[in-house]
Amino acid sequence: MNIVQLLVDAASLGSQYALVALGIGLVFGVMRMINFAHGDLIMIGAYALVVPTAADLAAPLIGAWPFPLLIAGILCVVTLVALATERFAFRALRKRGADGSTLLISSFAVSYLIQSLVLFIHTGRPKSVSIFGALTQQVTIHGVRVGLVDIVTIIVTILLLLGLSLYLRRSRAGIEIRAAAEDFTMARMLGVRADRAIALAFGLSGILAAAVSLLYVAKTGVLDFRMGVPLAIAGFVGTVIGGMGSLPGAVLGGFSLGAASMLLQALLPAELRPARDAFVYGLVIVVLLFRPQGLFVTGNAGERI
């Protein structure tokens, strides 16, 4: 395998994981809750492409729309589901002053609920759907063949990161989210509306999840009710090795994890390749042994007392 090809693949998977980690990091920032259901938002986005049915063959639903509508449709569906989980599951818990572990378990329950519902409607058999057919081809740049979808993934990720960081830095709502992530109680005293900041963070994480659904399906074309789980785990671990509560940390953590997976995939001997994830996450545990506070965190990482 060519080195440039490998680097593109690594950057592509890294971008995907970075988007997942950022979505999880945004919600963690304002709520101190790891949102288990984030992976299932991605899964919902993918399943929204096809007609809900128990039949084996999936006829496209939103997946058949022209592509600007398709993107808008999936963004809407996923964002609405993200907001719904916040409104109907997490808000009541938060109002009752639930502690971190209760929130964590409830997000696990929400995730399990969404998976069971999709399993119930679509059955557990994997389905296939093809969107953005033009992306599946290979392009040749300076004599190196790379997948167009990988290039698009990288570009979309860069654009989303730029857009989001502008939004978080410049807009009033974005500054409120960052303030809430810094010190929730203090932000509330200074007039940040808690419900709104949190709902907004969920909405943004929904948009990121929708982007990942589209990029993921464009690359693999496969739907499975557990497809969100490995992505979510990658996202969680990305936020942990990046340093919990830091958004740039989440992005870098997710990116490093994806890039490391791809590099290991290329470097491992063939018979060990199926167990690649075991090596990646083993490596993560070793990293955490030396830097339990995360790789990209400096200074005031410890919990304030």
């Binding site: 969680f236 671990v237 942990v240 167990a275 994830d277 996450y281 955490l288 339990p292």
Partner: peptide, 24 residues
Amino acid sequence: AIMRLTGAAASIALLSLLFIVKTI
């Protein structure tokens, strides 16, 4: 290694432990 982490980070690391062992 994992017990050096606290709170949610430890929970996630425990999940990845399961993922590792299951994959192996």
